[in-house]
Amino acid sequence: MASLDLMELNIRLLSAVVIGTVIGSERQMKGQAAGLRTNILVCLAACIITIIQVLSSQEVVALALQNEALQSVLSTDFTRITAQIVSGIGFIGAGTILVTKNNKVAGLTSAASLWSVAGLGIAVGMGYYYLAFTGCSIIYIVLSVLKKIFESKKTIKLTVYFKGPKDFKNKLSQLFEGMGMDILKMDFREEYNAKGDTINCFTYRAQVSDKLNLNDVSNKLVDFDESISYVKVDNL
């Protein structure tokens, strides 16, 4: 473990800021509540608390070595304070987790990233630079790259009312394919309006990206063809 002179302290604090910036910038670009400043502060604070733990433990050890009579009385634990960071960060993480009106849990990734950043701050505070920066790189890859590879999807119910031939579904299929929609099921039925006119209705069950705005889907369909009279989109 390197001696904690002024230069070493500055290196550790700066490293914590750099790591917090890397992870926080990714969260900031995704529009998450726990963004750049939050991640920097969490990483820096974890680093500072860990440094305090290291300094206090070193002082106890030095004091015991200088006074043999105190060796049986003095004791220290290099992990006691840092252990409280691991549990304490849970309160901040819990504040980023929300349950939406659709009973969908949001914010779990932000909570996990805060917990991870705190761990990186502890590593820097202890002087484990290789562990801290390697861990930072892996976490950044997980947050930025894996999201694109394993993009989460949601299931929707799409109802399209139109006046026209039944083969209109072929045009709709091309539109859905261009929007990245995976059609799971399709039903067709005929309905009648107050004037007795026949209105065709397609009901689709489809999987779409979580990023897809359902209002955009509805607007694109209405603007797609003048024969479409009404569109309804629901989350399942």
Rank of each mutant, 00 (worst) to 15 (best):
K153G: 08
S72V: 14
D5C: 06
F202M: 05
L143R: 00
L108P: 05
C136P: 01
A112C: 08
I183Q: 02
A33T: 15
L172Q: 02
N170A: 13
Q28F: 06
I89Y: 00
F162Q: 02
I228K: 01
R189L: 15
T134Y: 10
F162N: 02
I156K: 04
A111D: 09
S72N: 15
I139P: 00
L212F: 06
L175G: 02
I48D: 00
A34D: 05
K211V: 05
K30W: 04
V86P: 02
I228T: 04
V117E: 03
Y192I: 15
S15F: 03
K185E: 10
L131E: 07
T198I: 13
R189H: 13
L221I: 05
A194D: 14
V160T: 08
E191P: 00
N193I: 10
G20I: 01
A16G: 07
A123E: 02
I199E: 03
I49H: 01
N10Y: 12
L6Y: 09
V145E: 11
M1N: 11
I11F: 07
Q53H: 10
K195L: 15
T76N: 09
D223W: 06
N10A: 15
L70Y: 15
E190S: 10
F188H: 13
I51N: 00
S229T: 13
K101C: 04
K153R: 11
R12M: 05
T79L: 11
K232C: 10
Y140K: 02
V231P: 00
A45R: 00
